[in-house]
Design a protein around this nucleic acid. Sequence first.
DNA 1: TTGATTTTCGCAAACGATTGCGGTAAATTT
DNA 2: AAATTTACCGCAATCGTTTGCGAAAATCAA
Lengths: 330, 330
Amino acid sequence: MTNTTLKLLAQQLQLSISTVSRALKDHPDISSATKEKVHALANSLDYEPNAYAIQLRTQSSKIFGVIVPAIANLFYDSFIAAIEEESRKNGYALMILQSSNNTENELNNLKIFRQNRVSGVFACLSAHTHNLEVYEKMSDRDIPVVFFDIVPKDNKYIKVRMADERCAIIAAENIIQRGAKRVLALFGDPALSISQKRKQAFQQFMEKYAPKTHCTYEHTYSSLEAEAAFKKHLSKTQKFDTVFAMTDEILIGVMKAIQALNIKVPKEMGVISISNGFIPSLYHPNISYVETSGYELGKLAFVQMLANLKGGKTLSELTVDARFIEGGSM
Amino acid sequence: MTNTTLKLLAQQLQLSISTVSRALKDHPDISSATKEKVHALANSLDYEPNAYAIQLRTQSSKIFGVIVPAIANLFYDSFIAAIEEESRKNGYALMILQSSNNTENELNNLKIFRQNRVSGVFACLSAHTHNLEVYEKMSDRDIPVVFFDIVPKDNKYIKVRMADERCAIIAAENIIQRGAKRVLALFGDPALSISQKRKQAFQQFMEKYAPKTHCTYEHTYSSLEAEAAFKKHLSKTQKFDTVFAMTDEILIGVMKAIQALNIKVPKEMGVISISNGFIPSLYHPNISYVETSGYELGKLAFVQMLANLKGGKTLSELTVDARFIEGGSM
DNA sequence: TTGATTTTCGCAAACGATTGCGGTAAATTT
DNA sequence: AAATTTACCGCAATCGTTTGCGAAAATCAA
């Protein structure tokens, strides 16, 4: 079946293409009688404007590109879900590509975005991407880029992220409030600025407000390592009474160890983490956590994108605030 | 900065647009001297072909549409991840939209797909979508639709799904092998064919091969309900020794109850579920499960899509097989 | 040198929509 | 009845590519 186009409609109605086009979009030049006829035929013939022709003509695509390290990730999922919602409301569609934390993929994805002349890009940097030239290239083409989560340091970029320091501090506050004596604080890949920020903020706060509390810091790269680290430290003479997990991944490892050793939470061990909430809700009692909502972040990112698209250069870093969610593990 | 186009290249090189176009794609008509010059300038000017113009001209978009109920879902995530990988390998990009299990959204999404003239659609039906007219409309436009997971019954559609009956049977087999005496089997929304199939297969198998085993069946709609159901049945005089969870969601509820009641797995209670593996790996011991890999399903779906695009009508239902993954909970 | 080939390239028409500008008929004004 | 508006509508260029066909230039054969 051949697609129905303006031309086809025009022929059938003995009208010009321009008239049909205008009638369809309610242009005042066209009489309502004509408009009705056009709409009627368009409906019965299931006319769908060809997005490519429009985009070619208008040079704007109504598509946003999204780059995430992995789609199958609770945090990014909710981020994507949020911008998908907003995009649809605003008449945009989403093109989602995953970098798998691989710089080369990232480059290819950006190329696809450029070729498709996306209206804007939401990007989460791969763990080890440092060369931002490609992103400059987008800006050169007037395609705004909103970085999220893993963002570049330079302030000339538009970025939204979690209030990492605040997260860590809120966690620390609650640990102090619990009256913890010895705490094990587990962080992620030390090469990531997110790990650095969280650790630094956490450590500073603890040293300042609870200098007597003994803290052990460790970086782990996976759930398995976190589990091992937990067990290792627990077997030492000086046991700890509270554990802080910087990410879901780490929390998972910790909780496996806790279950395996049949440790009672929160009596024998306090647990607190930074999370979007899903993983903490899997355990009994629910794990207390500092909320970092990918969903909220997505909403914020979208606002930034729209603002940038509309007009002004809103070059700034926005953060979404964090809050403590009581679970029962502290 | 103005985008570099064929026209621009042509002007700068004193060549015609057609020559430039052909040079860029290594057409034999063009001398290698010219080709080199063209390539050189194209590179230095960062030429990126305009996908819209190409698509308008060639009438093919190199984009697949994907409709899932929710992006933030472990199963769909891995499905998406799989087709994303394959798509990129094959030069396609993905446009992902979520229906939120809402038929109206589904319609809108399909409209966007039609307007963007996607090359094909991967669709998971919303829970209560029964009117497939819109999907027919896609086929009318020669846009193949590959249904996955939640698929229509009619065999005229292309579909890939998990081997639901097999899953249930494998679970039943292992329950029998464990020597279970009383089992609680928890299923999802009874309106979904996936629940029906799994339950029916499970029940038939159990009645045939272990008629003396006492099975209690129940449908629950959420984790919370599953947790409540588990507790309710446990408080009865006749306790059960094995629980079967049809989905991750149900498993989560069950495990919360198990943790809350401090029940020992697998000594006091055997646990088995159907899952893609992530949730079962969160507990200690790991929960044994029948694997339904969204990733595998994605790969299969992509093969179907490609086959259909290439030529033949491969109207058939393909299923990806299931296998038992030993966790330690049985 | 001349005719036949082969290389190498340009013309122009598409693809489907948008839009400034100009034109015609009807309606309104003098 | 002539002049002026107003309401409707069409012409044609344009967005950036692709591609069939024809033509000029270069090479070759005789």
